[in-house]
Design a protein around this nucleic acid. Structure first.
Lengths: 346, 346
DNA sequence: GTGAAAGCGCTAACAA
DNA sequence: TTGTTAGCGCTTTCAC
């Protein structure tokens, strides 16, 4: 293994100069710098990160805590993070939130991750756990949107990125009303007691628009509360068994909506003639279903990029802040007038 | 930050004993061990990985090189790796193969990753680059399947995991023949010159079964050669413009097949009555399309698990080896007799 | 069975 | 402007 010292010897300078050239931490005269650069590439010298981390107390490694990568949503977010991270020499390490929280918290601390981004899905740390990480120098960015993330925010200072669905949901409900819909169901996928922005927006607009507010229309998930296609399938069936007169189904996300499409098809119902279906996230898959899925265009890569930028800011010692993004509603063929054959294609 | 030394002082032993207890590297008397354990948990001591890595020359970090996470395929594989990795204290770091290969190779070396798993999609390193990594102690496992991976294997010793599609494709072709199909297209998504197992299996069986071997039926992708739904959509349209008489489309993967479904629908063709469609990978999404997609059940999580296990073996100094998995064909509604209205549901 | 001590390769404060 | 040096916290011989 080639070390800084060998480079220094060959270039006839001191090891410190090599560091200074590589990190730009101090001024080095152009000719020396050039000579050093040359020797570095001749020898193919690559600094050892473990040594650097040990000395500098920074690992330039961040964690991304996700419930699952089976939802391409998180893949897109991860890619957004990676995009920003790699330009700054950071790497993104995946942490799948499975098993004991203490287990992966230990890994975060052990690895001295500089920070973590946690979206607001399906995991909750105790204030003590968060404080444990924070005291070890881990910075947080949280995807704000559920009571989990609200809890997190109360426990420890962090930057937040939140997605404001109100405009998109308002647009959706306006279209639903114009289309003559009055009974709109929501598939939440989660525990009933969890407050979550998309569900809350739904409930709020149902009341505001005077739609049917039968609690049976707000369908919760089942343990272990994942929010994938099979969950949407299961919950749509559940819904149809209690309220077969539902005219529109709004799902927590596109995958659940895709599952609902299947359940409706199997029940012999046509979409959108009999029931309209609306998803959320605008996965590229939502364009390829039949009918194409009306949805909300969550800017996934952008969320990842912003999260990484907020982390970088925190590392530079800047103040925590809160960023809000405003996704738009995307009208496609799965949404039309209630009990009507008008089909708006895409 | 709590260090080993503080634990040692409080427990009244030497720092070395702490290490011995934690790593089980040497025998420590039960009572001492117990005392040490107690102090460790009292203090919430977590060892510093950077220091450990520096001293031991192992980071217990592996990289997973992927073209994109937009295909849930890779998410599933990554989860499989993670599942095995976390039990052994390893972490999996994502490396998206975008931009200059030298850039992410540097990151792999810099971070002293113990090993990397590279699937065989869409990236190719030079022998020199591979040797560079190998000489720095990076171990490889490659997903064997394309000329890229064959090249890799020639250049450097590594373990290989390969997916043998021959049985599944034979089954598919047998069904196609029984169904009266004679003109089967393949959407490869890749450069025409790349040899890739699934494409090769297709070509081989086309000849073997005496089907139409018009080269126009073997549709290549377009730069930058991704293999997502939009690529399947584009290439299916391309196909329909030159060979509208195709009776079955076999796509490189499920996402491309889903894109093809859309192109067919837009062209006014019914699936499977007019054209049958077959994917590959058995993403859970393939069950939720309409009609449900016939596909090949690639064991994604298992591939990830095996890859991680092969890496762990290599770290223990065991010999490299080659593992083969044999996915099965999954018959669903998108495949039926040629020009026939018989629809096998699922 | 337990401990002392010499690194691992780098950063950063200080000296020259 | 460049070099010297003292750690960073751990692993790992090698003595005791």
């Amino acid at each position: 293994m080639i070390t800084r010292r060998e480079v220094a010897e060959k270039a006839g300078v001191s090891p410190a100069t090599i560091s200074n050239v590589m990190n730009g931490s101090k001024y080095v005269s152009p000719d020396l710098a050039e000579k050093v650069e040359r020797v570095i590439s001749e020898l193919g010298y690559v600094p050892n990160r473990a040594a650097r981390s040990l000395a500098s107390r920074r690992t330039e490694q961040v964690g991304f805590i996700v419930p699952t990568l089976a939802n391409p949503y998180f893949g897109d977010v991860a890619e957004g993070m990676e995009e920003v991270a790699r330009d700054q020499g950071y790497v993104v390490t995946l942490i799948t939130a499975e098993g004991e929280a203490d287990r992966y918290i230990s890994r975060i601390i052990e690895r001295q991750m500089d920070g973590v981004f946690m979206t607001d899905f399906g995991f909750n740390f105790t204030g003590k756990q968060l404080e444990h990480m924070r005291s070890r120098g881990v910075r947080f960015v949280v995807g704000e949107g559920s009571s989990y993330s609200a809890e997190t925010y109360r426990s420890v200072p962090c930057s937040r990125i939140s997605i404001d669905y109100s405009g998109a949901v308002l647009r959706l409900f306006t279209l639903l009303r114009e289309g003559g819909h009055r009974r709109i169901a929501f598939l939440s996928g989660n525990k009933p007691e969890i407050s979550e922005v998309r569900k809350d927006e739904y409930s709020r607009r149902v009341r505001e628009f005077g739609f049917d507010d039968d609690p049976a229309l707000l369908v919760s998930g089942e343990p272990p509360f994942s929010t994938l296609a099979q969950d949407g399938y299961r919950d749509a069936r559940k819904l149809l068994s209690v309220r077969p007169d539902t005219t529109a189904i709004f799902a927590l996300n596109d995958l659940m909506a895709i599952g609902a499409l299947r359940a409706l098809r199997e029940a012999g119902l046509r979409v959108p003639e009999d029931v309209s279906v609306i998803g959320c996230d605008n996965l590229y898959l939502s364009e390829t279903t039949w009918p194409p899925l009306a949805t909300i265009d969550t800017p996934k890569r952008q969320v990842g990029r912003i999260a990484m930028e907020l982390l970088l800011e925190a590392f530079r010692g800047e103040d925590f802040r809160r960023v809000e993004v405003h996704p738009e509603f995307v009208l496609r063929g799965s949404l039309s007038r209630a009990r009507d054959t008008l089909l708006r294609n895409r």
